[in-house]
Design a protein around this nucleic acid. Structure first.
Lengths: 250, 250
DNA sequence: CGAACAGTTGATCGGAATCAAGCACTGTGG
DNA sequence: CCACAGTGCTTGATTCCGATCAACTGTTCG
């Protein structure tokens, strides 16, 4: 996570929308994205229905309740998806990074809002076109189903975290997830870049900013992590952090 | 939910496992189960790979970490799925009722445990056979994907509940969900039967038994509900309860 | 430089967890 | 039939942790 360091520059900044011509084949995150299962020729079919969109940090991608006419793939940057209560309380249900698919769990309307956390690039597909494509390509279908299943597994892990874990355990689990995500991308697993603010983290872990901040300092004081800058975390003692997180996967 | 009142008796009690001969076509919950999309002839293909299993209240269906060799459909009774922390804390991630599908969100191993809350009957399919079947029947595939999406939506709703709602809001939301479930089945939406214990409810809502109990009495004292017996709830003021729940869907 | 914002730290409060009885229903065996 | 144990639920007293309120620091950027 966090890290789209290279991809940010590599992709043309582009206008806010333009049809792709040769984008997909040179896409940096293709091997992990939803499109990875498509052959070069099939990829052109996908490319034909793809629009490339740029979002600045903080911009809305879609709101909860909007008609869900599009599906997305994050090609760079970080995205948050969230649900809100009428009085303004917010629960972030997930952070998405380069390669992640966006748009599952939506019937006619999006069941959650999505915003860019950092500047981000997205591939946008019209839902109907994408469905047609999925009809023709079994591997794409399988991929989509697997993604839904993975998200469901992650959601259950998050329910355990939200319902039953103490603040320290929550934050430790969160940092370890980011660490594992780094590993998946061949990035140093001990150096974590936090694209999101403390408030985002709080709204993801079911805490307040203050508690998140205090918990960071507690972990730092215990020498489990260090905090060279506000958006960087170094994991100093993975084993101890894993013990605190209280479980293997989440 | 709760309510399998009729179906409990209607289905043959049966041994703990036996091959189905004519079960599916007369299945009481078929119209809402995963098999509803299959034609009579296709249904026989499903029936061929189906085993019928009975579980007594409290019995384990599978444990977290077991190899996920089977998929299930609940044909009667109530089931809980849950995750545990090493020290015994438990988070129930869902209750399943007649017609519900069980087994999504599992790779090689089940990512959660499943137990019968009440006596229950289950249709059990071997995973490989079911996958073969799904390969042949697009509508079954679609149905499965839609179920995964629905569960994902529900999971996000539950994350909002767990991370951001106060006990009263949690319980109100829970009761309204059960009420809506009743409606879906043509049962009186104001009369709710609770198959699960207070402890189950606590572990589902991220609370303790005591808090659940106190919250029940608070809602009763405010005349929003009444509690004729420990496992029955009458919703007296749906509007007020909806106000407290703080959202439309969950 | 200073305004705006993000983050930390401190002091206090409050509500849910915890600890501890007591109650109500169920089923068992005498 | 009743005594009794076992279990699930409620209620009360107390504790404690995270939320809240508030002040201050540090960073960014005009």
């Amino acid at each position: 996570m966090g890290l789209n360091n290279t991809s940010e520059k590599a992709l043309s900044p582009g206008g806010s929308a333009h049809q792709g011509t040769d984008y997909c084949s040179q896409c940096e995150v293709r091997h992990l994205a939803i499109c990875s299962v498509l052959e070069d020729e099939d990829l052109r079919a996908l490319e034909a229905i793809t629009e490339h969109r740029s979002k600045k940090s903080g911009e809305t991608i879609f709101d909860e309740g909007d008609p869900s006419n599009h599906l997305f793939n994050v090609s760079s940057g970080t995205v948050r998806i969230y649900k809100m209560l009428p009085d303004g309380r917010r629960q972030i249900t997930g952070f998405l990074f380069a390669g992640d698919f966006l748009g599952l769990a939506s019937a006619e309307a999006y069941a959650y809002g999505a915003e860019a956390v950092t500047d981000a690039h997205l591939c946008r597909f019209s839902k109907t076109s994408f469905q047609d494509l999925a009809l023709r390509y079994p591997r794409l279908r399988k991929r989509l189903f697997d993604r839904a299943n993975d998200e469901l597994t992650a959601a259950q892990e998050q329910m355990l975290l939200l319902g039953r874990k103490a603040p320290q355990e929550k934050l430790a689990s969160f940092l370890l997830r980011l660490s594992r995500h780094n590993q998946k991308w061949g990035l140093p697993p001990h150096e974590i870049k936090l694209d999101m603010t403390r408030e985002d983290i709080a709204d993801y872990l079911g805490l307040t900013v203050e508690t998140v901040s205090r918990t960071f300092t507690r972990l730092k004081t215990s020498n489990l992590i260090s905090l060279p800058s506000r958006n960087r975390v170094i994991i100093e003692d993975t084993d101890a952090l894993t013990d605190i997180a209280e479980d293997i996967s989440g």
